[in-house]
């Protein structure tokens, strides 16, 4: 199993981002994803900063991937996307088909991110033709669903043409909206958001009126209310999953990476009673199968 650190989904100050990647370079992760995927107003690191950070980290033993925005609306956002897709050598994670369009035009390979709707071997086959080399499964899919897709890929003769990555730790991106829910939670309109996301380094927890954790507000993104954690499901990933992704919450996520590695064959199970893993088990995502 290889491990990746996903892009930071929250809005952190620049120095914190840089510190995180310095530590991440010392970690055992094989793949690092960088870049802003949620909101174009988050510019602690600007386009050129992300590109130069990516270049700086590349060639030092880890695969560096630039991850792109999931919801693109304004022409300026499309222009930024094109700048990333036109870069020389850094691999791109496409989180919108707009990125696939640019990368295909440039004849560049890509990672199809979890926000690309791909639910069957036939869609995968289409993405392969366009240049996909790694597929990050949509977060709502299960082990059963993955197994069926990969059986289908065997039949189509494409099983060995791409890697499979599964988001295995962190709060799941579940929805994208025009509305900024963090700004709304502070009673601010989006256009005067005061970049308030920076005050919530892990988003804002939203509970039911009975205190049940339901969602995390992260700007225009709505995340799972509980941390998704497949650490104890790693043995069942053998033969199906090539890369397990951990979504960074803080530097502590690097400790989780080691816990994952230590439990690959089930030898060091972890206590996860506050987390969820339902999607992997083909039940409601918020559930925890033990």
């Amino acid at each position: 199993m290889q491990y990746s650190l996903g892009p930071i989904l929250y809005f952190w100050p620049k120095h914190q981002v840089e510190e995180f990647y310095q530590q991440a370079m010392q970690s055992s992760a094989e793949i690092l994803y960088l870049g802003e995927t949620v909101c174009s107003k988050r510019r602690e690191l600007k386009t050129k900063d992300w590109l130069s950070l990516a270049c700086e980290l590349a060639g030092k033993g880890k695969q560096i991937v630039l991850s792109t925005m999931a919801l693109l609306e304004a022409p300026s956002e499309v222009k930024t996307l094109k700048t990333y897709c036109d870069n020389g050598d850094i691999l791109i994670e496409a989180n919108d088909v707009g990125a696939i369009q640019f990368l295909h035009e440039n004849n560049k390979p890509f990672v199809a991110g979890a926000a690309i709707n791909c639910y069957s071997q036939h869609s995968l086959q289409r993405l392969l033709k366009l240049g996909m080399q790694r597929w990050v499964m949509p977060v709502e899919l299960s082990r059963d669903w993955l197994q069926k897709i990969l059986c289908g890929c065997e039949e189509l003769g494409i099983r060995n043409q791409f890697e499979v990555e599964v988001l295995s730790y962190g709060y799941l991106p579940l929805a994208y909206s025009a509305r900024c829910f963090t700004a709304r939670s502070e009673n601010r309109p989006k256009d005067q958001c005061d970049l308030c996301c920076i005050r919530y380094p892990n988003g804002r927890q939203t509970r039911s009126q009975e205190g049940q954790e339901l969602f995390v507000l992260n700007g225009i993104q709505t995340q799972s209310g509980q941390c998704y954690n497949l650490v104890n499901d790693l043995p069942g990933m053998q033969g199906l999953v090539d890369v397990a992704r951990l979504s960074p919450l803080s530097v502590d996520t690097l400790n989780w990476l080691e816990r994952f590695r230590a439990n690959e064959r089930g030898e060091n199970p972890q206590r996860v009673e506050r987390d969820c893993n339902g999607y992997w088990h083909n039940i409601a995502g918020m559930s925890l199968a033990t």
């Binding site: 926000a115 709502e140 799941l172 579940l174 929805a175 339901l214 999607y279 918020m286």
Partner: peptide, 8 residues
């Protein structure tokens, strides 16, 4: 691109 319903 909304999975809130399957999450619940």
């Amino acid at each position: 691109r909304c999975y809130l319903s399957s999450y619940m």
